[in-house]
Design a protein around this nucleic acid. Structure first.
Lengths: 106, 106
DNA sequence: CGAACGTTTGGCTATTTTGCCAAATATTAA
DNA sequence: TTAATATTTGGCAAAATAGCCAAACGTTCG
């Protein structure tokens, strides 16, 4: 793995890392269905609004979402919608794990 | 988000988190092409073999890969191959980011 | 048996991430 | 202009992660 390749894998990992948090993943899924303002997240997530803002900032930094200030509110939306396509596969992993668990009990 | 949903998002995040490291992501991509033994990773990655073993263990814990001991060696292989499908999208994010960067310079 | 090999595990420190609070900022409304 | 609202930023402490070394473990080979 040369230096350039290393940078590429670091970049890829950064995108995944941005999604690799329960709250951010949930946010991303919500945004796949359409834009939302920070205040809506604040209403629906049990965490400090500063925490929520920072999570959105991580998604933005990774280039997954973009923001748009309108009046007092800031709206976030997906920038690269395909990001959520692979969730079906992540769910497949979880199902596979669940089956393995179940097999242990049998 | 209720308790059950919370658990689901934690599980999903765990899968993503396992992949959200440059070395592990590289490993997963290699394994998509076929099984490999730990010793092969040790040859190709510039890190302590214990570190490599632990990375593989994270992928295994997440249910992404499985191992198979044959003699002195342990072979790892993809358990849920679809996991790598979304890499094309992760690359799309990176390209989008690169374009944004380029636009700044223009 | 004992030595060599391949791998995992334990333990430790350094680094990163998380999440809260408080303070700063920006916009709108009074 | 002051107050209220929406959001971001700075700073901190707690928790999680990463990576090295050393030790343990299991397998094969002499």
């Amino acid at each position: 793995m040369n230096a350039k390749e290393k940078l590429l894998y670091e970049a890829k990992a950064k995108v995944l890392k941005a999604l690799a948090h329960p709250t951010r993943l949930w946010m991303a899924e919500q945004l796949s269905a359409g834009e939302m303002c920070v205040c809506e997240f604040v209403d629906q997530i049990d965490a400090d609004f500063s925490t929520i803002s920072k999570h959105l900032s991580v998604l933005k930094q990774a280039g997954i979402v973009e923001d748009d200030k309108r009046g007092k509110q800031v709206y976030y939306k997906m920038k690269v919608p395909c990001v959520m396509n692979f969730m079906s596969c992540v769910e497949a992993v979880i199902e596979s794990n669940a089956k393995a668990q179940a097999a242990l009990v049998k």
